[in-house]
Amino acid sequence: MKLVEKNMTKHTFTHLDALESESIHIMREVAAECKNPALLFSGGKDSIVMLRLAEKAFRPAKFPFPLVHIDTEHNFPEVIECRDKLASDLGERLIVRSLEDSIKRGSIVIKDESKPRNPYQSVTLLETIAEFGFDACLGGARRDEEKARAKERIFSFRDEFGQWDPKNQRPELWDTYNTRVNAGENIRVFPISNWTEMDIWEYIGRENLYIPPIYFAHEREVIRRGGNVIPVSHLVQPAPGEKVEVATVRFRTVGDMTCTAPVESTARTVDEIIAETATTRITERGATRMDDQTSDASMELRKKEGYF
């Protein structure tokens, strides 16, 4: 092990150091107290930060949990490549379960192939939790993303239907976390609850993390539909009368291809993204997630159904 002479003083303990230490502490509580945890890993930037935090929490040992991805099969190929590359570089176990499996089983019935699949993700997630008997799932959700998340605990209890009851949350004091569940129940744990979009980018820069290239500005075929810029893909084709144009864009989030809109941007480096994030006037979800614009309470409803 290399010896680094780091003369850290209280004055150089920055907000990123504070957030990092908090997240490591949370991950270690899960490792120590939960019987069979898993880390939900999508290949998106927040979950890539989670992987680095897990390395910091557990190295030189292996992670005390597998990585799990619930694949909608509506993902950007670059994100899936990144998912597989990072899992293999780290030498950690990756479990992938697909919505297609649930569709074959009949537990998900898709009405329209071109519509977002996020609402169905919770079904496959709950099936995967049952298959492996996971009692805790570490997720990369942040409280600054959305109003309902702003009120959710770091250790968020789910009943046996995977449901979140916002009015009946366990009080969370200091950083003494109650991790106890009965058989069949589980907790979702959000170690980066207190991180903002800006913190994530600053950390990606500081740690020099590899992220899918579509987070950086690139040329892409898009169509403009109802005020949104939509990427053209095998799932989204122009309707009659719609014009395909090539725009310089980047993605702020990388979810379901049918509902994740890129933003017009020329930011090609992490520093340029940080500069752009500092001056942007639209929230991350507001700019990029069409499925959250449907109703003021859409995330709250999805969470109650067992979504992360």
Binding site: M1, K2, K6, I24, H25, R28, K56
Partner: peptide, 18 residues
Amino acid sequence: KEIVTYDGNLATAFAPQS
């Protein structure tokens, strides 16, 4: 003996470092 972190060993560590 050692104060180990992912970023290398430290000579001194303080609250609230993990």
